[in-house]
C-alpha cells in the first residue's frame, strides 16, 4: 500500500519527514486517522491533563463514522497503532447505513441534501437530535422527509414528553401554588426507574441508540398513562394524600426522565433541571426533588411560564420563536 500522495509541495498535506522526500506528502488516510492521536496530545497540552490514560489496553474506544470509512478505522488505524507500538486500538466501531432525503440518495453536486447550517437556523437542536436518533439508519438505510420530521416532533417529543412535563408542572402550579408535594412513591415505580437506567445504559454502551431512545419514550407513554389513570384533577377534590402521591411520582418521573434523556436531548433536560432545581444531571436514579415554596414558585414563574414553556411547546410552523439561545451549562468545548 502506498503511504504517500504522489504530489509535490504545491499540494496540501503533511510532508514526509525524510531527507530527499520533503516535497512528498503522507497519504491522507494515514494522516487523517492519526488525528485521533494528535488531537489527544493537543488536548493534553491545552488542558494540562494526561492523555496516556486513554491510550492503553484497558480503554474503551468508540469510533463513529459513515460506512464508507470503515476500512480506514478497522484496518489502517489499528495497523498504524500496532506498528508504532501505541496501545488502545479501537474496541467499538460505530457506523451507520446511509440516510436518504425524500426517498432519494443524497447528492451534494445536485444539491439534494438537508444542509445543517440551514436546518439549525430553523429548528430546535433537540428536535433534530431526536429525529436522527429515533430514525437512525442503524441496520438499514433510512429516509428523511420533512413530513416525518414534523410528525415525529409533534407527536412524540412535544405530544408525549412535552405534554407530560407540562401537565404535571401546570397542575402543581395551579393546585399547589408551585410547591412540590411531599408524597410517597410506590416501590414498584422505583424499580421500574432503576431498570430504565440499566436497560438504556446497556443499550447506549452497545451502541443501540435507536432502541435506547425508544425504550425511554415507551416509559414516557407509561408516565402519561399513569397521569390519566390516577386522575389527579379528581383526587385533588376527593383525597389530598392520593393526589400528593400522584404528583410526587410525576415529578420523580420527570426528574429521572431529564437525566436519562440528557445524552439525547440535552437542551430540554437542562431546562427541566433548572425548573426542578436539580444540582447536576447524573446517570443514577434520583429522588423527587423537594422544592421550598419560594424557590419553586420563582422558577415556575420565571422559567416554566416563559422560557421553558416556549422551549418545549415549540411549534414547527413558527421557528422564529426558538431564537432564544440556550446556554450549554454542561461542558466546555474547545473549538480551535
Amino acid at each position: 500500500m502506498s503511504l504517500q500522495e504522489k504530489t509535490q509541495s504545491t499540494f496540501i498535506g503533511v510532508n514526509i519527514p525524510v531527507k530527499g522526500f520533503e516535497d512528498k506528502k503522507i497519504y491522507v488516510w494515514i494522516e487523517a486517522v492519526t488525528g485521533y492521536f494528535s488531537a489527544s496530545k493537543k488536548w493534553a497540552l491545552e488542558t494540562g491533563k494526561d492523555d496516556s490514560s486513554f491510550w492503553n489496553a484497558q480503554t474503551k474506544s468508540y469510533y463513529l463514522h459513515g460506512k464508507d470509512n470503515i476500512p480506514f478505522h478497522t484496518v489502517i488505524w489499528p495497523a498504524i497503532l500496532l506498528g508504532a507500538g501505541i496501545e488502545g486500538a479501537p474496541t467499538h466501531i460505530v457506523s451507520n447505513e446511509y440516510i436518504t432525503v425524500e426517498k432519494k440518495k443524497l447528492s451534494t453536486s445536485k444539491n439534494w441534501a438537508v444542509w445543517v447550517p440551514d436546518i439549525i437556523e430553523r429548528y430546535h437542536p433537540d428536535s433534530i437530535r431526536y429525529f436522527l436518533t429515533i430514525n437512525a439508519p442503524e441496520e438499514r438505510d433510512c429516509d428523511f422527509s420533512w413530513r416525518e420530521f414534523i410528525y415525529s416532533h409533534n407527536s412524540e417529543l412535544l405530544g408525549a414528553y412535552g405534554n407530560f412535563v407540562n401537565r404535571s408542572l401546570k397542575f402543581i402550579e395551579k393546585y399547589y401554588d408551585g410547591s412540590i408535594p411531599n408524597g410517597v412513591i410506590d416501590d414498584s415505580w422505583k424499580n421500574e426507574i432503576e431498570q430504565l437506567y440499566r436497560k438504556v445504559g446497556t443499550l447506549i454502551e452497545e451502541a443501540h441508540f435507536k432502541r435506547a431512545i425508544e425504550t425511554i419514550f415507551s416509559f414516557v407513554r407509561t408516565a402519561n398513562k399513569y397521569f390519566d389513570q390516577r386522575k389527579p384533577w379528581i383526587q385533588i377534590k376527593e383525597s389530598q394524600v392520593d393526589c400528593n402521591n400522584t404528583l410526587t411520582t410525576c415529578i420523580y418521573f420527570i426528574a429521572n426522565l431529564a437525566q436519562v434523556l440528557q445524552p439525547f436531548l440535552p437542551f430540554s433536560s437542562e431546562k427541566v433541571a433548572q425548573v426542578l432545581c436539580l444540582p447536576q444531571l447524573v446517570w443514577a436514579p434520583i429522588h423527587a426533588p423537594e422544592g421550598t415554596l419560594n424557590q419553586i414558585v420563582r422558577y415556575l414563574r420565571e422559567l416554566i411560564l416563559t422560557e421553558y414553556k416556549r422551549n418545549l411547546s415549540f411549534s414547527l410552523l413558527s421557528p422564529n420563536r426558538y431564537s432564544i439561545q440556550v446556554e450549554n451549562l454542561f461542558h466546555q468545548t474547545f473549538f480551535t
Binding site: 440516510i99 436518533t133 437512525a136 437525566q259 446517570w283 454542561f330
Partner: peptide
Amino acid sequence: SLHLGHISSLLSGDILARYYRAK
C-alpha cells in the same frame, strides 16, 4: 457544508460522551 448524513453518523459520539460523563 455539512448535511444531515454527517450528523446522523456523528451524533452517537455525543450521546456516548454525555452518557459516560454523567456516569
